[in-house]
Each structure stands twice: as C-alpha cells, then as structure tokens.
C-alpha cells in the first residue's frame, strides 16, 4: 500500500529540505504545502499539529512535528 504523505514547509527551513531529500532518496511520493505563502495550508497545519513549527509531516494521518529520521522511516516502513 502506498503511503499518503503530506509535508508543510517553508522555503527557508533546513529540516524540511532534509525530510524532502529523505523522501526522494526512498522514492516516497509526497504533497508539499508552502505555509509561508499558502495561508489556508498554514491554518490546516496549525489545526493538525497545534503549533507553528515546520516541518509538519502527515503520514497516513499520523502527524509528526520536525524531522526525526528514525520516526519518519518507521512510519513509512523504509530503512533509515
């Protein structure tokens, strides 16, 4: 089953880039919302995570704040 992955990011956020690189290296497809420009995505992110930090990563409905490679790999079922 394919994972449904959404990342809320800003262009200046280093951990967002790390997360996206990790997705690419593991052939994980994802949807990206730039919350610096997209206000409704920002609201959605705050609603899901109850906070303002980026990245917020939604994997099949499970919400992660920040990029912790170990946790994200586990949720995706890929190796680190």
């Amino acid at each position: 089953m394919a994972n449904k992955v959404t990342i809320y990011s800003t262009p200046t956020c280093v951990y967002c880039k790390m997360a996206k690189d990790f997705f690419k290296n593991n052939n994980v497809e994802y949807t990206e919302h730039n919350v610096a420009e997209d206000d409704s995505a920002r609201e959605e992110m705050v609603h899901k995570s109850h906070q303002l930090g980026v990245p917020v990563i939604d994997i099949n409905g499970e919400v992660f704040v920040g990029f912790n490679k170990r946790e994200i790999a586990k949720a995706l079922g890929v190796s680190e």
Binding site: T10, P11, T12, V35, A36, R42, Q51
Partner: peptide, 17 residues
C-alpha cells in the same frame, strides 16, 4: 515553544507573515 515562541528567525520568519 513552537506555538509562537521561536528560536530561529532565518528558519521561521516566513511563518509570521
């Protein structure tokens, strides 16, 4: 922390448009 309290302006400034 993370709910408006922030530590890195280069990173998080765009969130405060």
């Amino acid at each position: 922390d993370g709910k408006g309290v922030a530590w890195c302006a280069t990173c998080d400034a765009p969130l405060f448009g």
